[in-house]
Amino acid sequence: MDTTHTDLSSDRLSNLRRLEAESIHIIREVAAEFRNPVMLYSIGKDSSVMLHLAMKAFYPSKPPFPLMHVDTTWKFRDMIKFRDETVERLGLDLIVHSNPEGLEKGINPFDHGSSVHTHIMKTEALKQALTKYGFDAAFGGARRDEEKSRAKERVFSFRNTNHGWDPKNQRPELWNLYNGRVSKGESIRAFPLSNWTELDIWQYILTENIPMVPLYFAAPRPVVERDGMLIMVDDDRMTILPGETVEEKLVRFRTLGCYPLTGAIESDADTLPKIVREMLIARTSERSGRLIDHDDSASMEKKKREGYF
């Protein structure tokens, strides 16, 4: 016994174990301090890691909060399939919300553009759902290394009664003492993966063997080239424009969102190690695959002030 102690005291936790412990601590704090928390589940790799951590945090209990997916109705079909299988496998509660007014007006990324579509079907839908169910805390899988405005966001990120973020008036956050106090109608977005990098995420997926949506792996898929991006023809709602041809190419996705807004990359990486290898040598940053961040009129910071995750 004594030798075990000596061995332990010369050991520090590895980077991944330290990140894991920190995330679990954050997830438990939210569960313990909030009346009605929810975990936003977007089906992607970060969400998958966050969910895996939540399962660990409360074991042998189930996470004491539901999952929620804000469905724009334009997600890849494989994502929805994976979502339903995951929830089934883990035995969790899932809330799916789509903006009913947006659906009625037939808002879609092709006719209305990425900016309008994202605002109505994602940002507005999220706010609707949070208000509808009265959630006072919502977990998101965002990381600080993703984008500049994320780098300064708190782990417990305060939102006013309109779900807005005020980057100039954030609560100081020290040690592991997170301030979860909110008044009625206000809420906290909690980011357990704040200190993870993309490489950490992939390393963790590899070492923990976490299931992933098949879209991350290279396969022959029908795509057209549009605005310099390879867009997958995921269903017949996509109109092929004059001059465009549908080609079958060996592609995969580095990030997942609405299929008309998410560019594929040509790749033959069909296993996790191959994906990580490809990621390690890629020079373009992760979000460059998403049309949404290229919209000048809608920077991430602006979107976040409006209530985007």
Partner: peptide, 25 residues
Amino acid sequence: SDTETITASAETVTDYILAQEEKDQ
């Protein structure tokens, strides 16, 4: 061309990644 420069096999990368699991912070 970047991809071609690095010809490490997937197996080598796996070993490399797993070795990194013990990486400190």
